[in-house]
Amino acid sequence: MSAGLEGEGVAHIHRQVRLVGILSAAEAAGLVPMPAQQLHAVGYFADALAPVWGLRILDAQVLKLKEGPTSPLLQADLDRLVGMGVVIASAVRHVENPEGLWRLDADYSLNQDFSESILDKARSFERYSTELDFLREVVFALSGLGAVGILSAGNSDASYGNEMIGPQGMVDIASEQSEVNPTARVALRFKELMHPDIALSDAEMVHLYVRELYNRLERNE
């Protein structure tokens, strides 16, 4: 979970831009206000699939919980965005998860007064512009799973759903031991499986991976 090359302050801003990007894409996909757990799940997939687009993973390790990916760091950044007025929280409540841990639950949406200028500024840099495009693809792909599907998608994911990792175990999506995490590996595999004449775009790989998740969810049902 180390911040890596970025300093703590810069890392916060990067994380906050990612959250704003997710909520903006969620708005376009009709998913707002977005419940906290959905936001955590999308945040997780944005990290797990980041290598497909050559992007940076922000939360390299997450704790495996029964109710799906939850990141205290993401929540802290979300809290700050609410404080700054960039994000609006509604239906705030506290819930105890199956492991007996308390977490904040709320529905989140963007405050357009502030978010638009943040997104405009971010888009002026190629790196962040690419990241916002990527987030849009992730959110749009996940939106096809529906609200319930997004929440349970973690269990079918190649990394988070790995049965060898038990509850309260560590899901490492940026392990030094392997070049790329299992989620991104599956997504990249689609490219290899395609006919040589067909060139899959990065966006298509994300969509194909989420479609695979959908199939797994259907099978599990």
């Binding site: 979970m1 390790q61 704790l63 841990l101 977490r103 309260q168």
Partner: peptide, 16 residues
């Protein structure tokens, strides 16, 4: 790393 993740999760829970 696992220890830190758990401690963070427990801290978040205690805070909430």
């Amino acid at each position: 790393r696992l220890g830190a993740l758990k401690a963070e999760s427990e801290h978040e829970s205690a805070f909430r």
